[in-house]
Nucleic acid binder design. Structure first.
Lengths: 120, 120
DNA sequence: TTTCACACTTACTTTTTGGTTAGTACTTGT
DNA sequence: ACAAGTACTAACCAAAAAGTAAGTGTGAAA
């Protein structure tokens, strides 16, 4: 773990006490992959390997990392069957489902404003 | 300008041809400040100095940088009166206004799910 | 002559995010 | 004995985003 200045602006900005609603939301779904993952889970649970095939441009590490964070934030549920080979499913929690209007709006906006977009 | 590997995954991911709607939207409004800036402009034009007072946790550099990008992306209009001292107003373009449902949804979600949030 | 308001820039550093490569664990099938 | 399948993890590195501190230009007012 790298040390960091405790009162840098970065730290202040990450301090929950200083967070406005918008920053809070951005923190939960920001970054390159979280919205895509959540959106892919909108209809059905998906296994790790399925997500990996869909998010073809991500690496396994990123996927695992993002899923872990989403689980920590209570947006996604991880359901691991205790079998070999492993079988792990991810699906939206109730809290995660409350994000669907946001995610749909974002996806729709992107579809309308990016002429070159393709599904993902 | 720093050089960069042309076929790194980062470059690929930034290539418009590979972008799905969600990534496109994230690229336009992602990061720590853009949504907040856009949201502050939802009702009225604001001057640089006014934004700076509202986004108290940002620096002038970040503000200028984000506004420039938002203008480049056609989401915000910069209206500079040719007077001294300068008087520059920023407001949402028509395209920028189409983001309002997304922004409202994000702000609302944050308000509901972050007990500690405060206005910003 | 200096100061002030305003809207920025510039050069540099730190922090955060994302990527590469390799490897782990466990059991079944060959 | 070894490969296959699944879901990861670890160590290390690169790139992008954000932050710090200082400075710029203009004209009018003090």
């Amino acid at each position: 773990m790298a040390k960091r200045k405790e009162n840098s602006t970065n730290s202040l900005n990450n301090n929950v006490l200083t967070k406005c609603p918008m920053s809070f939301t951005i923190e939960m779904i920001g970054g390159r992959w979280k919205t895509i993952i959540l959106y892919q889970l909108r209809n059905e649970p998906l296994r790790f390997g399925q997500l990996r095939k869909i998010l073809i441009l991500t690496t396994e590490k990123m996927l695992a990392q993002q899923l872990k964070q989403l689980e920590l934030d209570g947006l996604v549920v991880r359901d691991a069957k205790e079998i070999i080979p492993p079988h792990v499913e991810y699906y939206l929690s109730e809290k995660g489902k409350t994000l669907l209007p946001v995610l749909e709006a974002m996806a729709e906006w992107g579809k309308v404003h990016n002429q070159l977009s393709k599904e993902c």
